[in-house]
Design a protein around this nucleic acid. Sequence first.
DNA 1: CTGAAAGCGCTAACAC
DNA 2: GTGTTAGCGCTTTCAG
Lengths: 337, 337
Amino acid sequence: MVGSGRRVGIADVAALAGVSVGTVSKALNGRGAMRDETRARVRAAADELGFAPSAVARSLLSGRTFTVGVITTDSYGRFSIPVMRGAEDALGVGEMAAFLCDSRDDPIREQHYVRTLLARRVDGIIVAGRRTEPRTPIGHDLPVPVVYAFARSADPDDCSVVSDEAEGTRSAVEHLLKTGRRRIAHVTGPQSHASAALRASSAVEALEEAGTPLVGDVWFGGWSEAWGRYAVRAMLKAHPDVDAVFCGSDTVARGVTDALREEGRSVPHDVAVVGVDNWSLVAEACRPPLTSVDLNLEAVGRRAGELLLAAIDGRPSPGVHSLPCRLVVRDSSAPPN
Amino acid sequence: MVGSGRRVGIADVAALAGVSVGTVSKALNGRGAMRDETRARVRAAADELGFAPSAVARSLLSGRTFTVGVITTDSYGRFSIPVMRGAEDALGVGEMAAFLCDSRDDPIREQHYVRTLLARRVDGIIVAGRRTEPRTPIGHDLPVPVVYAFARSADPDDCSVVSDEAEGTRSAVEHLLKTGRRRIAHVTGPQSHASAALRASSAVEALEEAGTPLVGDVWFGGWSEAWGRYAVRAMLKAHPDVDAVFCGSDTVARGVTDALREEGRSVPHDVAVVGVDNWSLVAEACRPPLTSVDLNLEAVGRRAGELLLAAIDGRPSPGVHSLPCRLVVRDSSAPPN
DNA sequence: CTGAAAGCGCTAACAC
DNA sequence: GTGTTAGCGCTTTCAG
């Protein structure tokens, strides 16, 4: 990239090409009719000067900025990142640029960003969250469309895109049943966490329906490896015949796997382990590598971007859009034979 | 946040307040002299309509957008994220909004983003990278200032902000020596990786100077836990009397720690372990928690933001700006006694 | 103390 | 085919 170090305007191009500014505009935008020679001369002049039309001036006229705001609540953490990446993919197609705003879970900060974004005349806003609890909407009756990604809005009329965690949980349970497991336990995060509660109830339900109820109670605790290790040691005392542990997250699953090995149980021969998140960093470092439910966060972000583009285009899709998860099978759940 | 659902302009406010647009502008911006009553009336009208002046129109006039571009090469990975967070902190002070561009290590994509950002008339650009190898600059003689963060520019006249990895390495080695270790080994990533090579040579040098040369050769390999486990097992055979392992990253260190424990060596009683990155996720999950060199990425980003603001303000600071690291001591390097 | 008018860089009508 | 002009929403002179 070579720049002149100075801003060059359409007037400079016009002067160099020996035509008027109107002609330059038409020539470069392929509009109106004109001699090929003229168009070529203008193009050459623009290239020579490295002219790039000001998006600012253009926006003022068109009323569109081709810019969206992305508000994330969790400092680009492990959930927002893939969501943002997917959103960026979709928005790129519409030639949109994204303002990134990290609200750091502070409502004051968030409102500040909303105001800033509206003042900058963004065409739309994506709100990406870390928790799956329905969240307070960023505003009512805003002048631009808003799409919530991963963390749905508490207002069901808002447009939200989420992972279908219940479906993901069922697919994990069915996988364990299909590979011959019958004594399945569940270790997960805090009961107060919506995702932990939902995954637990979905797992219990799926197992009931299959006629092989959960072994013992749900082990609610924290999202750490330490909790996974602690819980599985206690569980082995109460239910030594367990043959599979479904975990609410990959970190918990890693703790569970480590403790099982240290207690002399072979994974997957004696006990299968399945996690949730498919956080490759954790799942692949596990010994053996961990089977896990992928929440398809990138797809959630992409969908959010697509729905936002459509809404900007006058085709809104209110309501909750639920996307399926994807079970990624690795060695930790291979059949026991 | 409540919006009208419709865009309201300065003319609407003027009509409601019964004054001219010029007066509204002055009233809201606190410029010029006018009766208090008039100013209050205008303010009330603006509030009632929820008026927010268009940053677009304002930019067209002022020639400034109060917007910067942040180009990241690694999909908001674990290095870019803290850098971006720090940059955002600094830029927020200047009321700057940031366009986020993920080049995904693709030069074509990167050039596309540079053009887009310039067309949008950003006031400056920050380039954040993942690798510490000097990188090809994004352009020469661009019309706006550019600051490189973490990954320095190959052009020494460009402004770059980096972590002082050599200093960080020395602080880790000195810490081990101070706590009584004398037989120190080094396990790290691929030799072809600039960070691995630099950290290794700095460690070797620091140990030479202290009169306690490195035990054996540097163990170059990969950045994985598996490599850490493999290397330490081989090392224990060759040098069973090693009493500390300095690792090129936290993941390697975690593998090293796990294998030491499994081989019956107590950490830190028999062998101390120190990593680099202070990636809390890994360092805190380690058994015992890992002492690690923090690269202060957030500070690097913050500094980059500050330098960019200064450059935009006409006070550029060309050259490489090196920031110190910070040793975070945890249990894995407690004295042996 | 307030209003009218010019102009930021560009596009889209309409003249010529 | 090409040039001229008005105007996007705002700030800033300069009159009144």
